[in-house]
Amino acid sequence: MIIIPEREIAGLVSPADCLIAVERMFASMANKSAYNFPVVREAIGHAEALYGFKSGFDREKLLLGLKSGGFWPNNVQHGLSNHQSTIFLFDADSGRCRAVVGGNLLTALRTAAASAISIKYLARPKSNVIGVIGAGHQSTFQLRAALDQRPFEKIVAWNIDPSMLVRLEEVAKERDLPFESVDLDRLGQEADVIITITSSFKPILKASQVRPGTHIACMGTDTKGKQEVEPEILARAIIFADEITQSATIGEAQHAVEQGLITSAEITEIGAVIRGDHIGRTDAEEITLFDGTGVGLQDLAVASAAVEMAISKGVAVEVDF
């Protein structure tokens, strides 16, 4: 069995590697050669933690495994990341554990890759301003990945605690782009692309704040009850998701589905656009929305890439198990 510690991941897999791996996996999902198993995600009643499993199987690549982990909100007090996870890969022929891979950075990179892919395929080509709602740890990964997809000329952002926006401002400085902290009305008026990356349980972005032609990537809602935008936005938008069932049950679409504003049949897998089976955006005035719930197959794809690179670089730790 191969073990790849968390400390090795940054030197093995780049954001570009993750984007390629996730894009290919989305296409495999749309082709029905790969599928996710039902998500288990629970409040454990200790340390305010959410814990669960995401898993799946890719028949074509014989990629089988799971990610175990979750969210520990008090970890920051101990100098640890709030998000903690480990990815397990299994041999599809025998069921033996093939690899155990540190999943913290990989989760951040694959989540950013998913929203970046949605921007690549759904945002208007002439998108000049990107808006970010949320300034937690994941926000910088989202912004860096997004900036690689369009020649954005400005960044605007909002966070419930404005002092945290400094981390997004640092990314703007890296890319030599102007940055402004704005209210939500102005963010909606200016942004061609909006990324929401919060842990909110009530809508932040209102339908009245979204103008025609906007692409929205909702990346924070991955649990029953979470919500970042008003359901009326989804009623107006063309909706895409990483996985339709998750979108309708634990993703941003859950609220619009529950209220009867949309049905799951109105949600399209982003993989269908990647494969060319769906046209995606059809005109410049459409609002497109990507519901990124995070699927186990994303984790398996990036972990597999890390294993292959670790073997080639000679940094994989092999143990008898």
Rank of each mutant, 00 (worst) to 15 (best):
I4W: 02
E6G: 01
R7M: 06
L12F: 02
S14K: 07
A16G: 10
D17R: 09
A21C: 10
R24E: 15
F26E: 10
N31F: 11
S33R: 15
S33T: 15
V39D: 05
A43V: 09
I44D: 12
A47E: 15
L50F: 14
Y51T: 15
S55H: 12
L62S: 13
K67R: 14
S68C: 13
G69F: 08
G69H: 06
F71V: 14
S85L: 11
G95H: 09
R98S: 09
G102I: 04
L105K: 01
L109S: 05
L109C: 07
S118W: 06
S118N: 10
I119M: 08
Y121Q: 04
R124Y: 02
K126E: 11
V132A: 03
I133G: 03
G134A: 02
H137R: 14
F141H: 10
R150F: 04
P151G: 08
A157N: 07
L165C: 04
A172E: 01
K173M: 04
P178S: 11
E180Q: 15
V182W: 07
V182D: 09
D185E: 14
D185Q: 14
L187F: 06
E190K: 12
S199W: 10
S200H: 06
F201Q: 15
K202V: 10
K202W: 05
K202H: 12
K202P: 04
L205I: 11
A207C: 09
S208F: 03
P212T: 01
I216K: 01
A217K: 06
K226V: 03
V229Y: 02
E230N: 00
E230Q: 06
P231V: 03
I233H: 01
R236L: 07
A237G: 00
I238P: 00
I238D: 11
I238M: 08
A241E: 00
E252C: 03
A253W: 00
A256L: 00
E258N: 08
G260F: 04
S264H: 08
A272N: 13
I274E: 05
R275A: 12
G276W: 07
H278Q: 12
T288R: 02
V295W: 01
G296N: 11
V307N: 01
V307W: 00
S312Y: 05
G314E: 13
V319C: 12
F321M: 14
